Every structure is written in C-alpha cells, then in structure tokens.
Simulated assay, not measured.
Amino acid sequence: MLKGKQRSYLKKLAHDIDSIFQIGKAGINENFIEQLKNALEARELVKITVLDNSDLDTKEAASEVAEKTEAEFVQAIGKKFVIYKESEENKKIKLPKA
C-alpha cells in the first residue's frame, strides 16, 4: 500500500511519461494483462489511456487493471491512469520512506 508521500513522488514521475497502453472496445483481456505485467516488470510505472469507445470508465478500468496485475493505483486524470508495481529484477524507482 502506497503512502501519501510515495504516491506524490510517483505522480511527479508519471507526469513526463507517455501512455503506452490503450483500453478500447475489446476491454481488458488476458493478453492485455500479460503485456502489461511485462511492461510493469521493465518500467515499474505505466500510464494507460481509456479510449472513448471503451465501455469502462477510467476509475473502473484502473481498479480492474491494478487488481489483475497486483499493482498499485497511483492516479487517474481524465481518460488516463497510472499504476505502479515494484520490479522483481529491474528496480529503477526508489520510493521515499513514508
């Protein structure tokens, strides 16, 4: 569980990254989750866009994705959200102490 200071730090880092995944009309499927898990292992912090043709709203999608990838929800703004999961082998982000 992320603490306030850690979440703020991740929000600051996420500001400059581009969205690398999109959720569209196909929704969230196993293939999407597997690709996202691989990206989280490599990057730790991932930004995702929910397209207009998706049946999910941003917070629903963020909640479902975070649960299925065992990641932490960081923030949602408009149609984009950010999740974080500490990498097992490629640790790049050092979170501040709570």
Rank of each mutant, 00 (worst) to 15 (best):
L10T: 03
A98P: 12
I17T: 04
L36K: 13
N38H: 15
A66L: 10
N90F: 15
S8Y: 01
A61D: 03
R7N: 05
N38W: 15
A66W: 10
D57Y: 15
K92M: 11
K5P: 00
I17Q: 05
S8P: 00
F73H: 01
L36N: 14
K47H: 07
F21I: 09
L2W: 07
I33G: 04
I28T: 09
S63V: 00
I17F: 06
N38M: 15
I77Q: 07
L95S: 04
F32C: 02
F32I: 02
A98C: 09
M1I: 10
S8M: 03
N31A: 14
L36P: 15
S8Q: 08
T58I: 02
I17W: 08
N53G: 00
Q35V: 10
G4L: 07
A14M: 08
E41C: 08
S63I: 01
V46E: 08
A98L: 02
L10G: 01
A71V: 10
K59G: 00
E70M: 10
L36F: 13
T69F: 12
E72G: 03
F81C: 04
E34D: 15
I17C: 07
R7Q: 12
I17M: 09
L40W: 04
Y9K: 01
K91W: 09
A62E: 11
Y84D: 05
K47D: 07
T49G: 00
A71H: 04
L51A: 07
I83P: 13
E67R: 13
Q75Y: 10
K91M: 12
K80R: 14
I20H: 05
K94V: 14
K97L: 10
Q22S: 11
D57L: 05
F21G: 08
Y84Q: 03
F81H: 05
E89N: 14
A26T: 11
